[in-house]
């Protein structure tokens, strides 16, 4: 072996050398303490980078950002222009199906008019109900319900994202309605925990 393969040590560390080169470097490292030390130092840099927690920046532009997001309309992730009406029509069906009055009326989703963003309205209404409901529930109910709602909400996001590319897909619409119904069910069951059990 002639010379030290220092210029290949980073690639060796990252695993991007071809097998022959890797073998050559490994054989050298077995015999060269200086290169082993250098490799360890390079590894320490990588670890330091991975562990880096940035210090607070000198300025905080949040007020400007907040102003901008309040002023600007938002991409919904589904229903570009001409497809919006189809999705809304299907979503109105979902919202209508999800019209419920439960118990003491603590939980209700109202039917939304056509051509309104009914999908997001029904779903947003559910999230609002959850935020209202949550402080009143015991911890033993809150955690699994929150976990379940997170699962469902991520699924709803997946489906709506898929609808962007394939808005006319009845399979996606069926899955969306099912996920929304699941959400309704979870919240209904959680609401039921609020109803005091009968006492003798």
């Amino acid at each position: 072996m002639t010379g030290h393969p220092t210029d290949r040590l980073t690639d060796f560390l990252e695993g991007t050398l071809d097998p022959a080169a890797r073998g050559t470097v490994a054989a050298h490292l077995a015999e060269c303490a200086d290169c082993r030390r250098l490799l360890a130092e390079l590894g320490a840099v990588r670890q330091r980078a991975a562990a880096w927690r940035p210090s607070p920046p000198p300025s905080d532009p949040w007020p400007t950002i907040r102003h901008a997001i309040r002023a600007a309309p938002r991409q919904r992730g589904w229903g570009r222009g001409r497809h919006r009406r189809w999705i809304v029509a299907g979503a109105v069906t979902a919202a209508a199906v999800a019209f419920l009055v439960f118990g003491r009326g603590v939980f209700r989703i109202e039917r939304t008019p056509p051509n309104a963003p009914a999908t997001s309205s029904a779903d947003s209404a559910l999230d609002a109900q959850w935020r209202e409901l949550r402080p009143h529930l015991g911890a033993e109910v809150t955690a699994p319900v929150a976990e379940a709602l997170t699962l469902i909400n991520v699924s709803l996001s997946e489906i709506t994202a898929a609808m962007v590319d394939d808005p006319g897909n009845p399979l996606l619409q069926a899955l969306y309605e099912r996920a929304l119904a699941d959400k309704v069910t979870v919240l209904m069951d959680a609401t039921a925990r609020l109803i005091p059990t009968r006492r003798g």
């Binding site: 532009p61 400007t64 950002i65 901008a68 997001i69 600007a72 938002r74 991409q75 919904r76 992730g77 589904w78 991520v154 996001s157 997946e158 709506t160 994202a161 898929a162 962007v164």
Partner: peptide
């Protein structure tokens, strides 16, 4: 600012 305004607008498309 532009980054986070863009993130806000595109967030509904984030599929997780």
């Amino acid at each position: 600012q532009e980054v986070f305004i863009r993130v806000w607008r595109k967030l509904p498309t984030f599929a997780g």
